[in-house]
Simulated scan of single mutants.
Amino acid sequence: MVKMGKDYYDILGIKKGASEDDIKKAYRKQALRFHPDKNKSPNAEDKFKEIAEAYDVLSDPDKKDIYDRFGEEGLKGGGAPAGGGGGGCAGPGNFSYSFQGDPHVIFSDFFGGRNPFDQFFGARNGGPDEDMDTEDPFARFGMGGGGMGGGMGGFPRSFSSGMGGMGPHSSIVKKPQDPPVVHDLWVAMEDVLSGCTKKMKISRKMLNPDGRTVRTEGKILEVQIKKGWKEGTKITFPKEGDQTPTNIPADVVFVVKDKAHRVFKREGSDIVYTAKISLRDALCGCTVNAPTLDGRTVTVSTTDIVQPGMKRRVSGEGLPYPKRPDRRGDLLVEYEVKFPERLSQSVRDTIAQVLPRS
């Protein structure tokens, strides 16, 4: 059975299998109910953010598909649970999701950049109507339970079409999202061995409170590099791109790149060390003290003649497996034979007598 972690469906008050329209209606109701401008309970802000995260996942087909199959752990890069989630489904691969969005921006985007409290109920001292029913703020207009279609409970259709994208088919709701902003994230092999946190500073445009003008500000995004992550792993920060009055901000995506190492090469979860040996050692056998990623050395001996391309494997001295970070790949010792630059005639004669011609 898939361990779900957070139950995004329960957070929105819907059942698994809910339609896209049901998800929108549920978000609309819950977000208005727990918006901190209206709901003064101590946990309203946390609940409001949790609702935004649930909507961000369930409204995106790709994220929703991974969550439905692998739960929160699989969605956030923990890998598929044992058994692959049932039914032979493939795991989430290199996908990793981390909710770093601003729930207030998501709320503003959903309502077309306008404040629904001010629009419907009027403001007093800069806040929403204190007598509004937080359970269903649209009930007094005959719009309870998300009945937002055609005329919106007695309002003329021309009025409802301009109400900040409130209708599920409104063109304002379907503002285009900017394409993802992709950055390379160079990671050292030692960081892949132990895991780490990278702090990445981005610069982006932010809407001012007037909803029309923008300012430029910096933000630090914390990227959790997990043990064993492979090159090409993507970490997505939803809607952290530029804000404008007419767009949905782009997702900011970091793509893991392997930083070149001075000693090792990487082959998946294995690492390769090249040992330089003499021709004599290649023919007569040798012992190599091979380094490890964590600063130790391991002894690798061979009595065989070293053939071209020959490697020796040291189990468990490589990098962690991405989906099984408690286990590690291997250290591969490959040999590079150093040939002498010159030989005396007597040595040549001796070799000619000792070595077979074929």
Results as ranks from 00 to 15, higher is better:
E217P: 03
D178M: 05
A80R: 07
Q345T: 07
E222K: 06
L355P: 00
I235E: 01
P36N: 07
M310C: 03
P180Y: 09
C284N: 14
D68T: 03
P308T: 04
Y273K: 02
K198L: 09
L75F: 07
H261I: 01
G91T: 05
P291Q: 01
D102T: 04
G17T: 01
I172K: 13
V192Q: 12
P42L: 13
D251L: 11
E217F: 00
S160R: 00
Y27Q: 00
F159P: 00
K25H: 08
H104M: 15
G147E: 14
R28T: 09
A54K: 02
F95T: 05
A18C: 07
I106R: 05
M189F: 05
K201R: 11
R324Q: 15
L207P: 03
D62G: 07
F107L: 11
T274F: 14
A80S: 11
M206G: 09
R124N: 15
P179H: 08
F141Y: 10
G13H: 03
G84H: 05
N208C: 08
D131M: 06
E317N: 11
G316V: 06
R313G: 06
G165F: 05
D184Q: 12
D56G: 00
H104T: 08
V306K: 04
H169V: 10
T197I: 11
N247C: 01
D294A: 12
R69T: 00
F339A: 09
P128H: 07
F254A: 04
K201D: 15
G162M: 10
K63S: 15
S98C: 12
S161L: 09
V263E: 07
D68C: 10
K29W: 03
K3N: 15
L207V: 02
Q177V: 07
T350D: 15
V314C: 04
M163P: 04
K64S: 09
P249N: 02
G88M: 13
A44L: 03
S96Q: 15
G316R: 02
R348E: 15
S344N: 00
P36I: 00
P103Y: 12
T197R: 11
L185K: 04
M310A: 14
P291M: 09
P249M: 01
E72A: 14
S161Q: 09
A90T: 04
S96Y: 04
S41C: 02
Q224P: 07
M132I: 11
T197L: 13
Y273P: 01
G71D: 12
G145F: 06
G329S: 06
F155M: 14
V347C: 12
Y9W: 10
F159V: 04
Y273I: 06
L331H: 02
V255H: 05
L207E: 00
S96N: 11
N208A: 08
D136V: 01
V263L: 14
S158E: 09
D136H: 03
C284Q: 12
D118A: 14
K175H: 10
G87T: 08
L332I: 05
G79H: 11
